[in-house]
Nucleic acid binder design. Structure first.
Lengths: 250, 250
DNA sequence: ACGAGGCTTTGCGGTGGATCAAGGCCGCTC
DNA sequence: GAGCGGCCTTGATCCACCGCAAAGCCTCGT
């Protein structure tokens, strides 16, 4: 949902040939992500136009959709799976600006160059639009631009929340706020559940919260031992949301 | 330039009667802030319409333009002076999301409620637009909306820079990056100079950088003693920009 | 000129989280 | 099913920054 752009680190290689391209059989009207994505701004008849401009694109775990500082020649809508949006400091320090979930739009800022790298946390399905095509569509559909602007504004508010979190919260508050925030995002995109999936690793959480991997791990085990959460494979179960919310001091 | 909204702390009281309202004699075409503000998206003939919708509004040091959580019934363009954009945690911890300078637009997100408080750091002159009026204008002028969206996108990128700064940088890097960033913003709005004005106090800088007032003070004196900057009344003089940029690791 | 209040600087411990260093727990592949 | 590699946890120590306290300094009003 955040801006985009990117250059990765590791052994993550964008292998264009590995990405299956071209529309699959499913039309926009039946897209699972449509109700929660920008596309919801378009009426059903308009979806035909959108469909003509779009390409499906899949990624495997670890592949980069785009890299920091690359020219932003396309924008994407996430349909399935999740990605991490990473920014690198010249000296190698890494920060994760956020995680993109189904329905999130990558390229909100329509910037010349991607400000972050987008790397798949698992199998990912996206809908790709060429930059020119999408700009032309925005030109023709003011309500799409308005919807995009509204999303960008919402993203800006989230970014502010994150700034406050990074600047003024303790390690425990950070971890708890992260879990609750993720839960709320899942709830908004449909499946709400007591169990919060964590598709990212501990290091990713740490790089998102401005902590080290050890601190994140310690805080999680502390919350577990206090019976506020239960650590399960692939995620956590929130046992006492009320008390967690008090801890997050939001 | 950031979002807006607000509820302050201290003895800052919005005294509506203290704000001189109504257009002064100067028309939009001669506005000093026009070249660097959203208004630059409008052609000279269109400025008449803009002018009809706008009201000048002045603030004294410490007065709030709006408060966190207030309904966002207006948007503002800063013409002269500077403001701090503050967000408060329920327990009193404060974070300053940014500082608005001449040319900055407050209310980019067009949100229902202000996300921050905007408080004048000194005498301030703003241009006020009613929310409804401005929305109607956006409806009528797509290029104004596009300009606003571009600004919001740029703001989002800045917010990401700030997140990286808050999450992954040392106290010294934070202070240096802040000084350099402020210098660049001044340069963009016209008057560039070796001397960087600091209209905000040390506590404000601390609350912006996620530090304490003592740490900010210590870093500044350390930079001063290293002859990288010179602390002068009301600001600092940058003595060795090259070395400062290396320190900021940007 | 003087005094008061607010802001800034400086010194001195204290501490939350970083850093360093083992292990432990999978889920692979062979 | 043994061995390997990646991730996660846990413990011990360290240090950058915090928090408190006391001056110092500047501005403003009288």
């Amino acid at each position: 949902m955040l801006v985009d752009t990117g250059s990765g680190d590791r052994a993550i290689e964008r292998s264009a040939q590995a990405c299956h391209r071209g529309r699959s059989a499913t039309p926009c009207a039946e897209c699972a992500a449509r109700p929660v994505s920008v596309c919801s701004a378009l009426a059903v008849p308009e979806l035909r136009e959108l469909e003509a401009l779009s390409q499906h694109l899949t990624l495997d775990k670890g592949q980069a959709l785009f890299r920091q500082d690359e020219p932003g020649d396309a924008v994407y809508n996430v349909i399935e799976g999740s990605l991490r949006l990473t920014r690198l400091l010249p000296d190698g320090r890494r920060h994760i600006m956020g995680f993109a979930l189904p329905g999130d739009f990558l390229g909100l800022a329509l910037a010349e160059r991607h400000a972050v790298s987008a790397e798949a946390l698992g199998p990912v399905l996206t809908c790709r639009f060429g930059r020119e095509d999408f700009a032309a569509l925005l030109e023709a559909k003011p309500h799409l631009l308005r919807s995009l602007h509204a999303r960008t504004g919402a993203e800006l508010m989230l970014a502010q929340d994150q700034m406050l979190l990074l600047g003024r919260r303790t390690a425990e508050e950070k971890v708890v706020a992260f879990l609750l925030g993720l839960r709320n995002r899942y709830a908004r995109t449909g499946r709400s559940s007591v169990t919060v999936e964590l598709p990212m690793g501990r290091q990713d959480m740490a790089d998102h919260l401005g902590l080290t991997i050890e601190t994140v791990s310690r805080m999680l085990t502390r919350l577990d031992r206090a019976h506020l959460i239960l650590i399960v494979p692939g995620g956590v179960r929130l046992l006492d949301v009320e008390r967690l919310e008090r801890l997050a001091a939001s």
